[in-house]
Design a binder for these strands. Sequence first.
DNA 1: GGATCAAACTATGTATACATTAATACTGAT
DNA 2: ATCAGTATTAATGTATACATAGTTTGATCC
Lengths: 225, 225
Amino acid sequence: MSPVTPKSKSNSAIAVEELRRLIFSGALPAGSDHLESELAVRLGMSRTPVREAALLLEGQGLLKVRARKGVRILPISIDDMIEIYDVLTELESMSAAKAAEKGYKAQDLKPLDGAIADMETALAAEDRDAWSAADDAFHTELVRLGGNSRVVSIVGLMADQVRRAKAVTLYMRPLPTQSNKDHRSVLEAIAAGDAQAAHDIHYAHRAAAKDVLINLLRQNRLHML
Amino acid sequence: MSPVTPKSKSNSAIAVEELRRLIFSGALPAGSDHLESELAVRLGMSRTPVREAALLLEGQGLLKVRARKGVRILPISIDDMIEIYDVLTELESMSAAKAAEKGYKAQDLKPLDGAIADMETALAAEDRDAWSAADDAFHTELVRLGGNSRVVSIVGLMADQVRRAKAVTLYMRPLPTQSNKDHRSVLEAIAAGDAQAAHDIHYAHRAAAKDVLINLLRQNRLHML
DNA sequence: GGATCAAACTATGTATACATTAATACTGAT
DNA sequence: ATCAGTATTAATGTATACATAGTTTGATCC
């Protein structure tokens, strides 16, 4: 490291990271408006990189740039959640099937196996945050094994859009004990090269998870998150 | 209309439209590099809106902004085409199934029926450009009927990325006479409310179209478009 | 003549000043 | 007092000037 700060990342890239962090942490609440100049001051840079970051995040569906009204952090409705979970269900199931067709060795499936093990550990310790992180890792690794980079990107975008809603419901619902059986079954189907089984098991898993989440939101009158 | 030009659209929006047009028309060829300042002169505006447009289109996967090297129009490889067609196959088939579940009336399905009629007319006249436009209309309307706005966006992005490649192969391959039977079958399944049939027929249709296209590209050694 | 280092150049990244326009407040008449 | 019309304001949209860093060029030494 040189004595002075090297400044490897551009301010624009920093603004993207920071804005994402502020959105996911709730520091910029869903539905709130923020002037570009305010955000610029907050991030310690000029409007230019902040505006570029805002336009990028608008493309990712996290906020909306509105003329003379600042950027609005987009809230997620129940209908949005249904849309997103339908896309996730479809593309993840496809990834599971494609992964099964690739004939991965046990070595290649270690990260997926590791994520399941982490979920089991977290469940035993009733550590919801650790479970959630491991669950994310499982789904991310699953689509990675599917081998389609566009699917990886799209699933990432959709997952980001429901991130806040998932965080809210994480402590509302019972511990997902069934979930891990499903994950193991998917892993076994992939290891066995059974594309149809991998697809169908994961599809049913996702559909069930969607129903649980939607019902939870409806019952608690959480129509916007 | 007022006497002077009203200027309803922002320069940034115009830049997006123009750049898309220049990319799809081949005026900015795949793989070519272009300085932001050159593009600004070409579009008759400053670098700012051009740069904003470039960043937006980078998010849509049409080009890449590279530090000190200008924007590169991204070429599409055969592997890219496979990725994109796999996503399209999955999401369009899902849309067909969802559309079938919605119980649309004949009135609601008129646009889809109209697109098929246009394809038949174009086929009879051997007008490939008209057929291509009607085929686009069919697929766009199909996902619209699916009722998932995110699927509409994603399918639009994927379709844009393969647009050049489709244009190249349009005059290379035989007239797609089988295609229309498939389209009619999908329409009938949706009208009959048979989600499984709508899904499976469209899935097979897309898979076949993908194989034709990929083989055509391989045979003609078109590895980058 | 070739290699090394430095200086100039070039194009993006960033800051800032300005233009534009929708919203708001104010003024004045009825 | 209310409404219409105008002026001010405020924030984005845009242009431009500047900073930064990578590349190329050129000069100098061996």
